[in-house]
Nucleic acid binder design. Structure first.
Lengths: 200, 200
DNA sequence: AATTGTAAGTTAACAGCGTTTACATCTGGC
DNA sequence: GCCAGATGTAAACGCTGTTAACTTACAATT
């Protein structure tokens, strides 16, 4: 009685929903992501999502975690490349941070939208710590540093500067009429200004 | 036939709606703000809001603008006090920035939620420029600087650092278990690290 | 190979949301 | 005193997240 295009059981619904969030967020922004919209895109009923995620917030938490790990991947690549070339690793990692925010603004927003995700989730927190660790690579760790999320003022300054720059580009009034390359050029100059703070 | 508590015409509905956004955002977060909820709190029908704002986004834009100006007010006070005492004005302004974000996180979030507001709105943009001007006070303006939103790398670094710190406190994993005073103490240390970058 | 328990999907319904349309009421200027 | 316009209301629309009751498919046990 029904047009049954696919089999009754989808098979990879949890991941497919994440991909749907990915696509809709990329195209229309993270605020446009809808459970029903994701379900329709996959060709599945709206209620099916609740077999795999307790609620919308849980889905977005997993999505934010995936986005965090994508950013961390990009930072890792940048760090390794800089180490090969003998460039400043911290600078390279910071540029990767800004580049990711400019390339995937919806992902970058989703990462830090505390009211939209379960920010105490273990996997999410692990991803933030992984992210932080790449920013800390450029610094000599003190003995007391056990918790990777317990930053020295130096380390926190580096994260703050690059995070603030990315946020101001993505959601702020800075360089609104500039294209991506101009913003990256500006980011390079700003981050270069930061170096004297670390050279004592 | 109806319990008519107040007069038919409210009189200050536009401002009252803003106050309702203020209260609901303060108490339950900016994501919990609802047109119907605001209307109910004032004791007015849901549709009445559309006589004063074209849509929800317009209301939130005005709210964000008001929040921006509140932050700018706090920064102005901090700047004047620092100038009286002979303290570093830039440092004082930055601390006011972080203090505001920690005291009114929902307001701080609303300011920069690009997908939730009309970020090209003239009043909103004017408020961002006013905000930026207090951060630029500490710097010698170059001749070419006409547009107050056209930053030098130095100025943008200052804004990025303090903005990123505020964002990481409000929406990030940094110092999550610390109270407000501990965060402010940490902010003070971080911003102090920034000074060498400006002393060349 | 048939049975049966469970995982994974559907359908229909719910309340609440933003928004629009048509209507009601008040207010200020002639 | 009347009329026009501004301001508020009621009812409806389609959309949202979420739940409950039901159906289907698979996989392990006998």
């Amino acid at each position: 009685m029904k047009k049954r295009n696919g089999p009754y059981h989808h098979g990879h619904l949890a991941e497919s929903l994440l991909d749907a969030v990915d696509e809709i967020a990329s195209q229309f922004g993270i605020e446009a992501v809808t459970l029903r919209g994701c379900a329709k895109r996959i060709g599945v009923s709206p209620a099916s999502a609740f077999r795999h995620y307790t609620d919308k917030r849980a889905l977005l938490t997993v999505f934010a975690t995936r986005a965090l790990n994508q950013l961390a991947d990009a930072m890792e690549v940048a760090m390794l490349q800089a180490q090969e070339k003998g460039d400043d690793a911290l600078h390279a990692v910071c540029m990767a941070y800004v580049r990711f925010a400019l390339t995937k603004p919806a992902f970058f927003r989703a990462m830090w939208r505390e009211e939209m995700i379960y920010s105490r989730d273990a996997d999410y927190l692990a991803a933030t710590e992984r992210l932080a660790s790449y920013l800390q690579e450029g610094f000599v760790r003190t003995i007391a540093d056990e918790d990777p999320c317990d930053f020295s003022p130096h380390e926190l300054l580096a994260w703050s500067a690059v995070h603030g720059l990315a946020c101001l580009f993505v959601d702020g009034p800075v360089a609104k009429e500039s294209d991506r390359e101009e913003k990256l050029q500006l980011a390079d100059e700003v981050l270069t200004q930061l170096l004297p703070a670390f050279s004592q």
